[in-house]
Amino acid sequence: MKEKRREKNITVQDLADRAKVIKGLISQIENSRTIPSLIVLIDIIKPSKLT
């Protein structure tokens, strides 16, 4: 996820804002420290987010 986010020039904060979560959660997900809930995962991968 981190690579795709960087390819699209999206900051952690931007992605967190779009997914309506705190940026620490995005960081934890990217660093394999936690697994997102299905709802958060869907919000992160919506086409407007990383594609």
Rank of each mutant, 00 (worst) to 15 (best):
M1V: 07
M1F: 06
M1W: 06
K2L: 12
K2H: 13
E3K: 10
K4D: 02
K4I: 08
K4W: 03
R6D: 00
E7P: 00
E7M: 01
E7D: 01
N9M: 00
I10Q: 03
I10R: 04
T11I: 09
V12Y: 02
Q13I: 10
D14E: 06
D14Y: 00
D14R: 01
D14K: 03
L15G: 10
A16M: 05
A16H: 06
D17C: 07
R18P: 05
R18F: 13
R18S: 12
A19I: 07
K20D: 13
K20I: 05
V21R: 00
V21G: 00
V21I: 05
V21M: 00
I22E: 07
I22L: 04
I22R: 08
K23D: 04
G24M: 15
G24N: 14
G24I: 13
G24W: 11
L25Y: 15
L25H: 15
L25D: 13
I26G: 02
I26V: 10
S27Y: 04
S27D: 05
Q28N: 15
Q28F: 09
I29R: 01
E30A: 02
E30W: 02
N31G: 10
R33K: 14
R33N: 13
R33H: 09
R33I: 10
R33D: 10
T34P: 03
T34L: 06
I35G: 15
I35V: 15
I35S: 14
P36K: 13
P36S: 11
P36A: 07
P36I: 12
L38Y: 08
I39L: 11
I39H: 13
L41F: 14
L41W: 14
D43F: 05
D43K: 11
D43S: 10
D43W: 05
I44K: 06
I45N: 10
I45S: 08
K46R: 15
P47G: 12
P47D: 14
P47S: 13
K49L: 15
K49W: 09
L50D: 02
L50I: 07
L50G: 03
L50N: 04
T51V: 10
T51K: 12
T51P: 10
T51N: 12
